[in-house]
Design a protein around this nucleic acid. Structure first.
Lengths: 343, 343
DNA sequence: TTGTAGGCGTTATCAG
DNA sequence: CTGATAACGCCTACAA
C-alpha cells in the first residue's frame, strides 16, 4: 500500500474493474450487481478508503465548507456565536473555516478573497468596526453568493441577516433603571457607526422620552474600544465633569459596565444604592462580580445556529433569498441582578 | 464573462496562447518573454483572475489549511489560543479549520477524519476529557503526519507538544499562599486523567512538602466539570465536612476559584482575611471581581502562536520532528491580587 | 520562448 | 451491468 490515502483507482486495480464501477458501487448506484458492490465495499474497507474531499470539491465546485469572519475570537459573545455555528455546521456535514479580522477592514477583505479562492460554499460575517463601505459584500450578494450577516449587519440591499433586538433590549434595560428610581442615566455607547450601537442608543432614548425624561447628549458617551479600563477612565471623568452627577449607567457591553462599576467604587459610590448599573451581553462574569451585574442577555449560540441554518439552506437551495424580507430578529432578555435593584 | 471565477484557460483564450504559458507567466517563470508576461498579467487583472486553491490542493496534495481541534470554543483560555493560532496561520498564508469536540472522543475522531479527507496539511490538537486512548493520534504520527498538541498533551512516543509549566505554576501559587500564612490549603483539581491536572496537583503537593506541611488527600478535591457552580457546591460542602476548616483554596481554574469565593462569602468568611484564594488561567474577570482574584496566568495566545509556528515549520520541512526531544514548555506567571494577600 | 500531454481523484455521459 | 472518456483547474516534464 502506498503512502497516503487509497483512491478509487487502487480499489479498481485490486478488483480488475474500472474506476467508474467502483465509484458507482460505493454510492449504491442502481445498475450495479450486488456482488460487485459487495466486493468493492469490502476492498474499500480493507484499504481504508476515504473519498478525497478536495477532488470532490474540484469536480462539484462545492467544498462543504463555510467561512466565518468575525472581529475577535477572544470575546465571550462571539465565542458563543462560533460555538453555535460550529455545532450546526458539523451536524449538517460542513466544515468551518475561521478568520478573525481584529477589527481591520483590510483583513476582512483579504479573508473573503482567500475564502472564495477555496471554493467556500458560503460566508457568515460580522464585520469590523472599520468597515463603513460594504462594496466587498454587495458585490458577492449580487452575484448570488450565499452570505449571512450576524450581529453587526449592514444596511445594504438584499443582505440576509440575523441580529438581536438591540432596540428593545436597550429600551427594557433603561426602563428598568428608571423604574428603580434612577434619574440621571448615562449611556455608555458602542462605536456609533455600528447599527447595533445606534439601536441601543435609540432604545435608551425612547425609554427616557416615554418616561417623560429629557435626552441630554452629554449623557451619551461613546466607548469605542469596549474594554473595562477604557470605560473606567471615561466614567471617572464624567462622574466629575457632568453638571448633575449620573446615578446610573446603562452600558452597551458588559466590560464597559464593569469599568463603570469599578470607577464608581473608586469614588466611594455604593452600588446599587447610589448608582445603578446595567450591562449588555450577559457575559459569564456577570454573576461572579460583586454586586452581580444586571445585563441584557444576547442569545449568541442561538444566533450562530440560526445564521448557519439559514446559510446552509441558501446553499442547498432550500431557501430562496428573495423570499426573505427583513432581518431575523432574536429576542433579548433582561437579567436583573443586584447592580440595578434598590427597591 | 461567465459566472464564477476566471480561469487560466480564460486568459489563454483571450490571448491566443496556451494555458501553460499563462501559468508560467503568472508565476514569473524564466523563459517567458516580458511582453507575454505583461499581457498575461494585464488580462488576468482585467478578468479578476484568482488561482483556484482547490485545484492547487488537488495537484499538490497540499491545502495550505491547518485544522484545529479544541474541546470548547467558549472558554477564555482556548479562545486566546485560537486567536494566537489564527494570527500566525494567517500571516504565514494558511487557513484555519476549526472544530470543537465538546469534550467528546467520538467527535474528536470524526473531526480528524474529515480533516484528513480535506487534505489538511497538519493538525493542532488539545484533546477531549474523554480521550484516554491515543491510537487515533499515534497512527497519524507514525505516518509522519504533522501534528502538534497544545495544553492537553498525550504521553505517547514522538508527540510534539507545547504546554505551560503547570507544575511550576501550581507550585508557585501554593507557595504564595503558604507565605501568606495560610495553612489548610485545599486544591480544587481538574479532571485527574489530564496531565495538566496531575502536574498541578504535583506542584501543589511539592510546595506543601517543601514547606514541611503534610499532604492530606481529602484536601485535594476534583472539580471535573470546571464551572463556578460546581465548585461552589463542592466548596460549601467541604467547608463543613473537613475536620479542619480550610483557610485557602488553590483552584486549577478560575471558574472554580470564583465558585469557591462565592461559597466562602456565603458562609460569611472574609477574603482574604479568613480565606485566601488563587486561581489558574487569569481569565479576564479576575480583575473585575471583588476581591480581585490572584491567578496563574497562562500565555494562551503565545501557546497558540508557538504551536502553529512549529506545525507550519514541520509542514514546510523547516523543522525535523526527530530533532525534538521534549515538549516545549512556556512559563506561567503568578499574578498576585487581593484574594490571596493578607500580610 | 511556447505548446502538448498527462495527471492529481472523482464523477457524469455516452457506449457497449 | 460495466467500461472508456472527458472534465473540474492547475502544473510540469518533455517536445518543438
Amino acid at each position: 500500500m502506498k503512502i497516503g490515502q487509497a483512491t478509487i483507482k487502487d480499489i479498481a486495480i485490486e478488483l480488475n474493474v474500472s474506476a467508474s464501477t467502483v465509484s458507482r458501487a460505493l454510492k449504491n448506484y442502481p445498475g450495479i450487481s450486488d456482488e460487485t458492490k459487495r466486493k468493492v465495499k469490502e476492498v474499500a474497507e480493507k484499504l481504508h478508503y476515504r473519498p478525497n474531499a478536495i477532488a470532490l470539491s474540484l469536480r462539484k465546485s462545492r467544498s462543504f465548507t463555510i467561512g466565518v469572519i468575525i472581529p475577535e475570537v477572544v470575546h465571550f459573545f462571539f465565542s458563543t456565536v462560533i460555538s453555535g455555528i460550529e455545532g450546526v455546521a458539523f451536524s449538517r456535514g460542513y466544515n468551518v473555516i475561521l478568520t478573525q479580522t481584529n477589527e481591520k477592514l483590510a483583513r476582512e477583505i483579504s479573508s473573503i478573497e482567500t475564502m472564495l479562492d477555496n471554493q467556500i460554499d458560503g460566508i457568515l460575517v460580522s464585520f469590523s468596526k472599520e468597515t463603513t463601505d460594504f462594496e466587498h459584500f454587495s458585490k458577492l450578494i449580487n452575484q448570488g453568493y450565499p452570505i449571512v450577516f450576524f450581529d453587526r449587519v449592514p444596511e445594504i440591499p438584499n443582505a440576509i441577516s440575523v441580529m438581536v433586538d438591540d432596540y428593545k433590549g436597550a429600551y427594557t434595560a433603561t426602563n428598568h433603571l428608571i423604574t428603580q428610581g434612577f434619574r440621571n442615566i448615562v449611556h455608555l455607547a458602542g462605536p456609533k457607526n455600528l447599527k447595533i450601537s445606534q439601536e441601543r442608543i435609540r432604545g435608551y432614548q425612547d425609554a427616557l422620552i416615554e418616561n417623560g425624561m429629557k435626552i441630554d447628549p452629554d449623557y451619551i458617551v461613546e466607548c469605542s474600544i469596549g474594554t473595562d479600563s477604557e470605560s473606567q477612565k471615561i466614567t471617572s471623568k464624567i462622574l466629575k465633569s457632568l453638571p448633575v452627577r449620573p446615578d446610573a449607567f446603562f452600558a452597551s457591553n458588559d466590560m464597559a459596565a464593569v469599568g463603570a462599576m469599578l470607577a464608581c467604587k473608586a469614588e466611594g459610590l455604593r452600588i446599587p444604592e447610589e448608582v445603578g448599573i446595567v450591562g449588555f451581553s450577559n457575559w459569564q462574569f456577570c454573576t461572579m462580580i460583586d454586586p452581580s451585574l444586571s445585563s441584557v442577555s444576547q442569545p449568541g449560540s442561538k444566533m450562530g445556529a440560526k445564521a448557519t441554518d439559514m446559510l446552509l439552506d441558501m446553499i442547498e437551495k432550500k431557501l430562496d433569498p428573495n423570499t426573505i424580507t427583513g432581518p431575523v430578529v432574536l429576542e433579548t432578555e433582561l437579567l436583573i441582578r443586584k447592580s440595578s435593584v434598590r427597591l
